[in-house]
Nucleic acid binder design. Structure first.
Lengths: 343, 343
DNA sequence: ACAATTAAGTAAATCGATTAAGAACCTACA
DNA sequence: TGTAGGTTCTTAATCGATTTACTTAATTGT
C-alpha cells in the first residue's frame, strides 16, 4: 500500500492512478482540474503523508527560491555582536518573515558568492563588504540586489539622504565666513590611493555616496559664504584607521590650517580627533570636527563626536520591502544629527 | 562564440566538444580524467565565465545542501535582541562558517517546516519552539537534528549536565536537615496543566530535562538528610510568568511553608521572588530561592538571583560541531553557579 | 604477438518537480 | 450532422546537474 517511505510527486501520482501533472496542478493550479478531483487528491496525499512538492526540485524548475541572502559586511559573529547591525537585521527579518521568505546569512568574509547564488532569489547587502571580489561578483551574478549604505550601480539601494544630511552636519559645523574648511572624503576617487583631490568640482554630478555627501558639504560651504580652496579635499581610499590618520595629519598641517574638518565617516573623524589632540590642538576651539554614521565609539570618545545618526531598524525594513518590490530605485531613510562636543 | 549569456554544464560541454560527464568530473572527480584534460576544461570554463555546476541542481541530485537551518525559539527579532541567544548564534556560525556551511534562520513562529526541509541538510534547534507542531514536524521530517536545551528523542542534543548542575545549586541552597523544601518544576508532566505532582518518585528514570533536574534536586535533598514530602513538587506547564506566579503563590502558602524553593528556571524563580516579597517574606531569611539559566534579569533583580549560568557561545560551537559530526549523542556543556543574594 | 589490465571518456538514467501542447470527451448551436 | 468551444486530464520536454555502466584506446605481462 504505502510503498515508499517518502513520497514523490511521481510515486504518489502512480499510487492514485493519475498523472504527474494532475497532482502537481492539484497543489499549484486549482483551475486546471475539477474541484472534486482536486480535493480527492489533496486528501489522499494528506492521508498517505505526502506534504507537497519537494521545494528543492520546485525551485530548480521555477528558478525561485523563497530565500534571500543577507550579505554581512563581516562575519556573522560581528553581526550579532554589533547593536546597529543587529537592529538592521531585526528590521529585515520582520518584513521577510511576514512574507514567508527565509533569511540566509552570508558572511562578508567568504570569497565566493558561488556557494549561494544558485540557491537564493537575491541579496540584501548590508554595507560594502570588506572583500572587494564580493562586490564584483554581486554585480555580475546576482539575480537581484539591494545594497545598503553603498551603491553598485544596479538594482536598488537604500541610503540616507546623503546630500541633505551632509548639508545639515556641515551647516552645523560652519560658523563664520572666514572658517577654514577641509574635507576628508571617503572613496571620492576610484584610484585606491590616498591623495589630495584637485578640481573636485568635476564630481558635482557623481552618484556615489561620496559624491552625494560632497555636494551637501559644498552647498553648506557656499551658503556660509565660504570659498573652498582648490586643494582642501582629501581622498581616503578605504575606511581604515591608518589612511584616515595620515590624511588627517596632512590636512591639519596644511596651510591655511583648517579649523573645520568635514569627515565622511566617524572612523575618519575619530582618527582626525586623535591626530588633532596629538598635535596639541583643542577641540572644538582650534578645530571643529564632524563625522558621519553614528557609531558607538564616537559617543564614548572625549570629546563626544558630532555626527549623523541613522535609524537602523527602519533601514532594515525598507531594504527588505524594496527587495520584495523588485523595483529599481533608491530609497531614503531617516537620520538625525547627533550633537557632541566636537563641533 | 559565447552563445548563452549564462552557461550550463550542458552548453559548456557542447561548446568545448566534450561530454556532460567530463565537465562534471573536471569539477568534482579529478581522478576520472587526465590531468591535462581537466586543466584545459577548467581554464576554458573560467575564460568563458562558467563558474561551476549550479548548486541548486547539484543539491537536488546529491541530496545535500550545505545549509543548516537554525530554528529559533521565537522570531528572528528576538534572537538578535537577546544577548544569550545571539552569543549562541555566534558560536554556531563560527563553526559553520569555518566549514563552508551556510546558516538559514528559521523563525520558531512559523507553523510549517515544509518551506525549508527540502532545502537544508538539517536543523539546529535552539530551545523548545513555542509552536508544538514544529516539534512534531522536526521529529518526522528532519533529515538530521541537533536540539539544544531540550530533547526530542532522536539524533543529537546538547545540554548542560542538568542533574549535576541541579544537584550543585540545590546543595548550595540547602543548609540544615530541617529545611522545608518545595520544587517548582518545569514541564515535569506532559499534561499541560499547572498542578501539584504526587508520587513524583516514579520520574526517577525519565530522560527529559525536567527529570534530570529533578534527580539532581532529590539527590541533594537526601544528601542533606532531608525527607521531601510527597506533595512538595509543582508542575508548571510552560515557562510563563502567569503560571509561575500561581504556582509560587500556592507553594508559599502551603503547609509547612517552605523556606527553600528550587525553581527549574530563572523565570519561575523571579516570579517566586516577586510573590514572596508581595507576601511580606524576606529573601533569603524567610525563604531561599534558586533558579536555573542565568538570564540577565536575574542579575538585575534585587536581591540578585542565585542560579546556574551556562556558556552560550560554547554551547553554539558544540551544537554546530555535533551537527557536523552527524553522531547521535548528547553533549554536555560547562556551567557555573552564579551566586546572588537570593539564597 | 595476444590476452588481460588499466585509463579516459561517453551515453543514458536519474534526482523531483513544472508546464506547453495536445488528446479525449462533452455541450451547444446552426 | 458537423464543427466550434470548453473542460479535464495526460504526454513529454525541460530545469541543471550526477553517476553507473559501458565503449575505446593504450599499456602491460608473458
Amino acid at each position: 500500500m504505502t510503498k515508499p517511505k517518502s513520497w514523490t510527486l511521481k510515486s504518489i501520482a502512480q499510487e492514485l492512478g493519475v498523472s504527474n501533472a494532475t497532482v502537481s496542478n492539484a497543489f499549484n493550479r486549482p483551475d486546471q482540474l475539477s474541484k472534486a478531483r482536486r480535493e480527492e487528491i489533496l486528501a489522499a496525499c494528506k492521508k498517505l503523508g505526502y506534504f507537497g512538492p519537494n521545494k528543492a526540485a520546485q525551485s530548480l524548475r521555477r528558478g525561485t527560491f523563497n530565500i534571500v541572502a543577507l550579505v554581512l559586511p563581516d562575519s556573522v559573529e560581528y553581526m550579532v555582536s554589533d547593536p546597529v547591525a543587529s537592529s538592521f537585521m531585526r528590521g529585515v527579518s520582520a518584513v521577510l518573515e511576514k512574507n514567508g521568505i527565509n533569511l540566509l546569512l552570508f558572511s562578508g568574509n567568504s570569497d565566493n558568492l558561488n556557494s549561494v547564488v544558485d540557491f537564493v532569489d537575491g541579496f540584501i547587502c548590508y554595507g560594502r563588504p570588506r572583500n572587494k571580489q564580493l562586490v564584483e561578483q554581486l554585480k555580475q551574478v546576482a539575480k537581484h540586489v539591494v545594497t545598503v549604505d553603498f551603491n553598485i550601480g544596479r538594482d536598488a539601494s537604500v541610503n540616507v539622504n546623503n546630500q541633505q544630511a551632509s548639508f545639515d552636519i556641515a551647516k552645523h559645523a560652519l560658523h563664520k565666513s572666514d572658517d577654514r574648511v577641509a574635507i576628508l572624503g571617503l572613496r571620492l576617487l576610484d584610484n585606491d590611493v590616498l591623495c589630495r583631490v584637485y578640481e573636485h568640482h568635476e564630481f558635482e554630478a557623481g552618484q556615489s555616496i561620496a559624491h552625494q555627501r560632497l555636494r551637501g558639504y559644498h552647498q553648506a560651504i557656499s551658503d556660509a559664504g565660504i570659498t573652498l580652496g582648490d586643494d582642501r579635499t582629501w581622498n581616503i581610499p578605504e575606511s581604515s584607521e591608518r589612511f584616515a590618520s595620515i590624511a588627517a595629519k596632512e590636512a591639519l598641517s596644511s596651510t591655511p590650517r583648517p579649523n573645520v574638518l568635514l569627515c565622511m565617516s566617524d572612523l575618519i573623524a575619530l582618527a582626525a580627533m586623535r591626530e588633532a589632540l596629538k598635535m596639541g590642538l583643542s577641540i572644538p576651539e582650534d578645530v571643529r570636527i564632524v563625522g558621519f554614521d553614528g557609531i558607538d565609539e564616537g559617543q564614548r570618545f572625549v570629546p563626544k563626536l558630532t555626527t549623523v545618526h541613522q535609524n537602523s531598524e527602519e533601514k532594515g525594513r525598507i531594504a527588505a520591502t524594496l527587495f520584495l518590490s523588485k523595483e529599481q530605485q533608491t530609497a531614503e531613510i531617516d537620520y538625525q544629527l547627533q550633537l557632541g562636543q566636537s563641533s
